[in-house]
Design a protein around this nucleic acid. Structure first.
Lengths: 214, 214
DNA sequence: GCCGAAGGTGAGCGCTCGCTTAGAGCGGCC
DNA sequence: GGCCGCTCTAAGCGAGCGCTCACCTTCGGC
């Protein structure tokens, strides 16, 4: 059904599009390091070390440390937007599409928490040009969710007094999963996705009977 | 440049308990700098400069840069916990208390966004001992909210299948306000607080009729 | 008028940062 | 074989970091 084959246990590393191999290893190492300690607290020596290379090797594949963050942020936002678009543009009622969108978006933020953390919380470390590019992607993310809610209101499925505010809250709720989700905690990404889909349907005043689609 | 006499929503600067005066000025400067650029990207020279002092003056009042963050985090969590406790322990129905708790908690995260940002997002920069102390405070925050929801379920006001998961989601929603709230944006802290209180009541399945308290 | 404590400064130490440079290793093509 | 181009390393540069030190100023108590 959904082309985005998210199967958060045993998931394929999503960086296969990054070549050559050394560049990908560096990028994966940077994602881990940025997620653990934050962009500013991560040294280029640490990144290169995690990738099994000398500090200088980083600069063969990336001009600066910031370019690494930019690439990660860009790829991550592309992926997040793709997940939401897939859910938003399937056929089905607005209730089904919103449930699908939230549960898959949350699954990604929980299951690929390291990536999501970097993507969502290190935006301010980018320079003005790169940040503007990412902010434009975020506006598209917002538009997808708002579109589903608009549809639901128009169809009489949802009762939402403030569509823009509710959109903001729904996205905020999903994104913050990347901050608190603990891989060793009691919940799987699947469970959090299901829980959150139910909570969001309540937030928009939808009928609580939503079949566990996906 | 900007005087520290911000009174966002009639609220008094909450640092009056910090003495002497120079120590308070340094602390306020550190809050601003940490919120703007993050702990690791902030230099001690920047903090001292904002407070109108030489770099060495910082070390008369604080042993290290980390102690500054620790003090800010401690005071901020104390304040957040105090806000929630006040709402949780007033008299009234669970619906009224939850509405009050969410709206006041959100008002604080929006109105005192700089402080909230540091408090909520720079936890990882603390050492193990200081972090453990703050984590204990967060557990108390969680317990206050869970207590209200428990009461509402017991009283038949709420329908909540997963109390712990819903508590987590409610707190997550409120906390993330500090990430996205924009002082120059279209919403006041009051408005966001009211919006969020309504959304949270829907999340717990409460009757939507909630009087707009205070 | 003198003293000690408290609060401040200018200079700078030792270190680590992001990044650069000179050159080595090596596979592919003529 | 000779050479090129790509990948990578060892060494290290200039800058800026957190923090310290020797010294100065102010001020209440006697």
């Amino acid at each position: 059904m959904s082309t985005a084959e998210e199967t958060t246990g045993g998931e394929v590393e999503p960086w296969e599009q990054v070549t050559p191999d050394a560049a990908r290893r560096l990028l994966v190492a940077a994602v881990e390091a940025f997620a653990e300690r934050g962009y500013h607290a991560t040294t280029t020596r640490d990144i290169a070390g995690r990738a099994g290379m000398s500090p200088a090797a980083l600069y063969i594949h990336y001009k600066t440390k910031e370019e690494l963050l930019h690439r990660i942020s860009r790829l991550g936002h592309d992926k997040a937007l793709d997940i939401l678009r897939t859910a938003a543009r399937r056929e089905g009622t607005a209730t089904e599409r919103l449930s699908d969108a939230v549960s898959s978006f949350v699954r990604w933020h929980a299951g690929r928490r390291t990536t999501a953390r970097v993507v969502q919380y290190e935006l301010d470390a980018l320079g003005p040009a790169a940040r503007a590019e990412i902010v434009a992607l975020r506006r598209q993310v917002d538009a997808e969710v708002r579109g589903i809610i608009d549809d639901g209101v128009a169809a009489g499925e949802f009762r939402v007094p403030d569509v823009q505010g509710t959109t903001l809250a729904v996205l905020s709720l999903c994104i913050d999963v990347a901050r608190w989700f603990n891989v060793d905690g009691p919940r799987t990404p699947e469970e959090v996705g299901t829980l959150y889909a139910g909570l969001v349907l309540r937030m928009v005043g939808a009928e609580p009977a939503a079949p566990a689609q996906r």
